[in-house]
Design a protein around this nucleic acid. Structure first.
Length: 496
RNA sequence: GGCCCCAUCGUCUAGUGGUUAGGACAGCGGCCUCUCACGUCGCAAGCAGGGGUUCGAGUCCCCUUGGGGUCACCA
């Protein structure tokens, strides 16, 4: 009964009230994929009917966040379209006109109850342990009398006249059949006294006139869906297909992910789209991860490109269960996508991140350093401590840090001296030269390569971990290498 | 509290009456190896509980329990 053969048109309809949350991004992604998969249209509509919560910066956060993941909209702000305007605050005349239809047909009625009366009503209900809700005080008003009071300037809202009996059923693409007894539904407000529509009313009117075929939204909207259906019925309109997406839970799995949570004493985890971007996550990884959060194609595939998602995404394969956000898996996927990058692209990205740290990196060095770390990082922030010494002096270290567990200070000093000597024999040591030198020293001293490499690694980079040593020596060049080896010797000798 | 939704390893999931319940992340161990990663091999880990239906239930039904959502002139 809800199956349609009309063209697929989906919409993402956020309200501009602040930051763009990942949960919203995931909803946008599923909505966008539904349209793209079917070759339909994706609409962006801004639900700014609450003037008290409006945030002027929110629209920009929304559009830049969507663009970041490559979720382009066919109709909406900035691009226009045949069903505009796409900001609800600019569609007020439409809502006024439509509410009149409902008022005239008796499907809606004017309510003059004041905020004070409503508050008192609620207080009494609470006191008597009754279910809260409007008591339909104005439902019985004679229409003519209501019109007169309104004309006299009395403030009013329009409420939906919900049937007192019967059941409202709808088919949800994700959960199947959902039904509600009308007796439990409220006569909800359609138009506010300030002349603005409520979400419920504007949403239905716009979805109808924008010819939306599939309404995809968060599952928190399930309880108001029967009311929406009743509005469609009051107009005599055919409702769209509904698909309520599962909530994204906190990493702990307890409660929905809303406010930022702190990892066990660790750094703050991003929750806003902007924060993910600033933390150095790749859009490919976020797209991939979000798609898997609540959806699966039924195979073992875990890595998906945007194109693969478009080809395979299907709302009916969305899992109804709430899903906990797993930062570790996102991090892993980010590493996967970093490794998939073209080396040149990675080098460029690395350069940008170094730039933010105030490190100016030459293109040639970047191109040489990039491949050394590309497969060893999961996030761009991991790259800094791995490569900084190529572009500036190593982090300060103590002479004792040079000495590996397998050697003593005297032999460590010998390693430093011999390495300098060997490397100085060649004009410009290549990685192969460096390898020969270090393996040779190990053989001479009857030691393993590991401790010898440790000494050199600390001497050159200031840390016991870093990129592959031999290549590092080649990229660093003879001047820097020999100078740092000499510096290391001085530090070692300074140890008491 | 009323109403609605949900329930497979710690996490994300596959499963559509007959499977040794599969994969991925994380964890642990081995291999690779100049460190760290990557890669690779392996281990551990799950059908919330109870009733039915059935020759046979993770799969269907009911109850319990647990979790979530929602009850505004906010969306």
């Amino acid at each position: 009964m809800t199956e349609k053969n009309r063209p697929v048109r989906t919409r993402f309809a956020p309200s501009p009230t602040g930051e763009f949350h990942v949960g919203g991004l995931r909803t946008a992604l599923f909505t966008w994929l539904t349209a793209r998969h079917a070759g339909g249209r994706f609409v962006l509509r801004i639900e700014d009917t609450d003037r008290t919560r409006f945030d002027p910066g929110a629209l920009g956060a929304l559009t830049s966040g969507l663009r970041w993941l490559g979720l382009d909209w066919d109709e909406g702000p900035e691009v226009g379209g045949p069903h505009g305007p796409y900001l609800q605050s600019e569609r007020l005349p439409l809502y006024q006109e439509q509410i009149r239809t409902l008022l005239d047909s008796g499907s809606a009625y004017r309510c003059f109850c004041t905020a004070e009366r409503l508050a008192e009503l609620r207080r009494l209900q609470e006191q008597r342990q009754q279910a809260p809700g409007y008591d339909r005080h104005c439902r019985g008003l004679r229409p003519e009398a209501a019109v007169e009071r309104a004309a006299a300037g009395e403030a009013w809202v329009a409420r939906l006249k919900v049937p007192l009996q019967g059941t409202t059923v709808f088919h949800d693409l994700v959960r199947g059949e959902i039904s509600y007894e009308n007796a439990g539904l409220q006569d909800l407000v359609l138009m506010k006294s300030d002349g603005f529509p409520t979400y419920h009313f504007a949403n239905v009117v716009d979805d109808h006139f924008m010819e939306i075929s599939h309404v995809t939204r968060a599952s928190e909207w399930i309880p108001s869906t029967p009311s929406h259906i009743l509005i469609y019925q009051a107009f005599g309109w055919e409702p769209p297909v509904f698909a309520h997406l599962p909530v994204i839970l906190d990493p702990s799995g307890k409660g929905k992910m809303s406010k930022r949570k702190k990892g066990g004493g660790g750094p703050e985890m991003p929750v806003y789209v902007r924060e993910f971007r600033e933390a150095g996550y790749l859009p490919e990884a976020v797209l991939n991860y979000l798609a898997l959060l609540g959806w699966s194609d039924g195979t073992d595939q875990t890595e998906f490109t945007r194109e693969e998602l478009i080809a395979k995404f299907d709302l009916t394969r969305v899992n109804p269960t709430g899903a906990a956000f797993d930062y570790q898996k996102l991090d892993w996927l980010n590493g996967v996508w970093i490794r998939k990058m073209e080396p040149a692209a990675f080098a460029r990205l690395l350069g940008e991140w170094l730039g933010r740290e105030g490190i100016e990196a030459g293109e040639a060095t970047l191109a040489a350093v990039g491949p050394l770390v590309q497969e060893r990082v999961r996030g761009m922030k991991d790259a800094l401590p791995l490569v900084d010494f190529f572009f500036r002096e190593p982090a300060p270290y103590g002479g004792a840090d040079l000495v590996p567990p397998q050697l003593d200070a005297a032999s460590t000093l010998r390693v430093l001296e011999r390495l300098s000597g060997r490397l100085a024999e060649v004009e410009r040591p290549t990685a192969a030269d460096a390898e020969g030198a270090i393996r040779g020293i190990a053989a001479d001293l009857g030691a393993k390569v590991q401790p010898i490499a440790h000494v050199a690694r600390v001497a050159l980079g200031g840390r016991p971990v870093g990129p592959p040593l031999f290549e590092t020596i080649e990229v660093l060049g003879p001047d820097v290498t020999l100078r740092r080896l000499g510096e290391a010797r001085r530090r070692l000798e300074a140890v008491p």
